[in-house]
């Protein structure tokens, strides 16, 4: 396997940002009640992390080490605010959908984490690949969690009724099936991620702790 492909493929499973590196948990819990929101968030992070990693990597030789954290935070915040302002002016509809995610992206520690761990010590092209790889790994977990929470919590996927109509009692609901409203609450996201970790580590014993 080439070095570059490894940068993309590793974070998808064995070095996943959420389940192994413990980065970006807050947003993974907050917005996964619906599959659509998970997908939008994943795409936004893909963009910000890809571009941010390149910018930080280009600046890596001129950033003073004492204030590097401030510099990183400012770079990501500036990027996000610029994108937000430009969207507000030229694509207002799109910006309304995305504006909810602005705060979540700036405070997302996956972005800071990758700046610090990778972009500060590597060239722009490799940093770009690392950014893409890690956001894809992040996306995988978000989409799995979003899928289960929306399916079991509201019986829909992307807003389409999969299991029948709960009010008219069609489909599965005709047999007495009920939506588990609990799945929509944030604590269940923690438990779903816990189960994903369980499944992942029983398949790959090398990841087991202690």
């Amino acid at each position: 396997m080439g070095k570059d492909t490894k940068l993309i493929l590793d974070p998808l499973a064995d070095n996943n940002p959420i389940t192994i590196q413990v980065l970006g948990i807050c947003s993974a819990l907050a917005i996964t009640a619906e599959l659509e929101a998970s997908i939008v968030m994943s795409i936004s992070v893909l963009f910000v992390l890809g571009v941010g990693n390149v910018v930080i990597s280009l600046m890596r030789n001129i950033i003073p080490s004492k204030i590097r954290i401030i510099v990183q935070l400012i770079v990501v915040a500036t990027l996000v605010i610029i994108v937000d302002l430009v969207l507000k002016a030229f694509a207002y509809e799109l910006s309304k959908t995305l504006s909810v995610f602005v705060g979540l992206i700036i405070t997302n520690c996956i972005i800071m984490g990758r700046f610090e761990a990778f972009a500060l010590g590597n060239g722009p092209w490799r940093s770009f690949l690392d950014g893409i790889g890690n956001s894809l790994g992040y996306a995988v977990i978000l989409i799995i969690v979003g899928f289960f929470r929306e399916l079991l919590g509201s019986g829909t996927l992307l807003g389409i009724k999969i299991l029948g109509d709960p009010v008219a009692k069609t489909g599965l609901y005709a047999f007495g099936y009920e939506n588990n409203g609990f799945m929509l609450l944030s604590p269940m996201a923690l438990i779903v991620v816990g189960i994903i970790i369980w499944v992942q580590r029983s398949r790959n014993k090398a990841l087991i702790e202690d």
Binding site: I31, E36, V40, M41, S99, V100, L184
Partner: peptide
């Protein structure tokens, strides 16, 4: 809304 939880 400005920033309520997506999906909730």
């Amino acid at each position: 809304h400005k920033g309520e939880t997506p999906g909730l």
